[in-house]
Amino acid sequence: MTCDDVRDLAAGFVLDALEPDEMAAVREHLATCADPHAEIAELASAVPVLAASVPVVEPPAALGARIRAAAAADLAERDAPAPPVAVATAAVAPPASEVVPLPTGQEREQRAAARRGPGVGTWLMGIAAVLAITVLGGWNLLLQSQLSSAQAYEDAVAEVLDVAAQPGSLTALLTAEGGGPTGLAAVDSSGALTMAMQALPPTSGAEVYEAWVIAADGVPVALGGFQVDASGTGTLASTGLPTEPGIVLALTREPAPGATAPAGPVVASGAATPAGAG
């Protein structure tokens, strides 16, 4: 989508009157475009007039109590499982001490074998399933090229596909403009992210690749960082993501871990959509 396309769709965008794929494409463009697209803000500033023009209708008195009860139930559920905030970072670079190393070759092989099962490729079936349910252009080619890449990346992709196969999951294809690093990510219905990236230029020193999620409010939220060795492969797990279709995942290269706002260039990005839709 070009800047001109966005300008053409701007009025529909601020009124939420675009087709779903157009909405996602505009959102993704705005998240990464250098142009501030002031026309969006200009048009959006008139929208509250429409909202303010509606007749006043008071909600039923019981609604507040119902919402509170639902929130209390949600709170109880939230407290039960693991931490609600973004945590984990994982890295492929084995020598990096501050990050969780990937499994050793032997562990990887065991896990891969467990996944493959006796003889047959469960993993390949997973890929076939995703291929069958996705209509994203270019997946087929991309997955074929991924299949021929390093074992570490294959394993990482397999984990993403495991998540993607769960009901209610979102999947995103991360790409760079004009080629370069690519990857897959899946967000399960609890907001847990699994990401696998390949063809990343290796990091040096304190440099990290930082992942971001950009949701409805348009504010990039850091998901964690990882370092990359000569293999060019990187993986990340995180939690606490919004589970709304259309969220944008982006990867930037940052001079040091812990960035709270992206400073480096966007390396790859993509919008997350339900696996079965499109």
């Binding site: 965008f13 601020v14 939420d16 779903p20 909405m23 505009v26 959102r27 705005l30 998240a31 501030p36 697209h37 002031a38 969006i40 803000a41 959006a44 500033s45 008139a46 929208v47 509250p48 007039v49 303010a52 950009i214 949701a215 409805a216 409010d217 348009g218 504010v219 709304e244 279709p245 259309g246 969220i247 959509t273 339900p274 079965g276 839709a277 499109g278």
Partner: peptide, 23 residues
């Protein structure tokens, strides 16, 4: 024919605060 996608609000990325600005 709506795809089974839940609509999410547009981002306020680079959007000024439309309510405060005009309200």
């Amino acid at each position: 024919e709506l795809p089974d996608i839940e609509v999410v609000p547009p981002p306020q990325l680079r959007m000024p605060d439309v309510w405060s600005e005009v309200s």
